[in-house]
Amino acid sequence: MATTALGNGLTVKAGRYLSGIGYVNEQHPHAWDFADQNLAYSAMLGEHYAQDGLQLKWVAPTPMFLEFGLEAAQGADWGDRNGLGSKAAFVHVGDDVGVSHAWRAGLSYLRVKAKGREGHWDDDNDVEAETEFDGTSKFWIADFVWKWAPEGNPRYRNFKFQAEYVRREEDGDLSCEDNTPAGACPGITDSYDARQSGWYAQGVYQFHPQWRVGYRYDRLDVGSVDFGPAFAGVLSKPDFTPKRQSLMLDYNPSEFSRLRLQFARDEAEQGLKDNQITLQYIHSLGPHGAHKF
C-alpha cells in the first residue's frame, strides 16, 4: 500500500488497503476497543473490507473538516476476482466543539459484485447448508464518533462514543447444497433478494492512564429476504434478531501492550444464549504507524 499526497487536498492510495468506508473498517484488530468485531461488520462485511485497488481522497479547503473519497477495486475476499469489482464512495465531516470535544461523522456507499461468495445457512430441516451467492451487494454505512478529553488532554481521562449503522441490499442468485442426506437443499439455484441491516453503539471510558472500561451493544435486523420459488420448503427467512452486549476492561502497561477481559451476553444465534468470557493480550511488535482519530 502506498499513499501519495498530490497536493490541493488530494491523496491517492494504491495497492492492498482497508477500505475507507465506515469508521472501524480502517482499524487493525489490535486497535479495536473490544476483543471481537461488531456483529454488523462481521456478519455483512466479513470483519473488514480489504481490497486491492485505488483510492482517491479529497479534503476540501474548508475550516471544518470535509473529506470525500472514491475507491475502485477488485472485490477481494468476495469469491472469484476475475473481472469483478467493487466501487465505494464516502464523505466524512468533523470538527472540535470547544477544546474538550471532537467528532467525526461519515456516510459511505459500497457496491460489490459477488461471484460464488460462500455462506452458511440453516435449511428448513435444520441442517447447515452451504450457499453460494452470485449477484450485487450494495451497502450504506452511517458512522459517528465523539471523543471527550478534559482540556483536550486525553492522558488521564477520556471518553469515546462510537456508533455505526450498516444496511445491505443483495440481489442475485443463490445456490444451496447440503452435504448430508437429511438436508433440505438438493443443490438448487434460484433468485435471492435481501435487505438487511445492523448497528452497534459503544462507549469506552479511560479513567486512569492505564485503565479503560467499555460497553457495546450490537444488533442485526434480518429485514426482508425473498427467495425464488425453488427454495420453498428449503430455505426460509430466519425470524429472530441477533443481538449481543459486551463489557470490557483493559489494562495498558505501555503503548505496545494491552491486557483485556471481556464479558459478552451473546444472542447472535437462534435459540442460543451464550455468556462468553474472553481474556486477550495484545503486544505490538516492530515499527508501527500512528493511529487515526
Partner: peptide, 10 residues
C-alpha cells in the same frame, strides 16, 4: 499525545 483530530487535518 494528542490525536490527529479532523479539525487539525482541516
Amino acid at each position: 499525545r494528542i490525536e490527529a483530530r479532523p479539525s487539525l487535518i482541516a
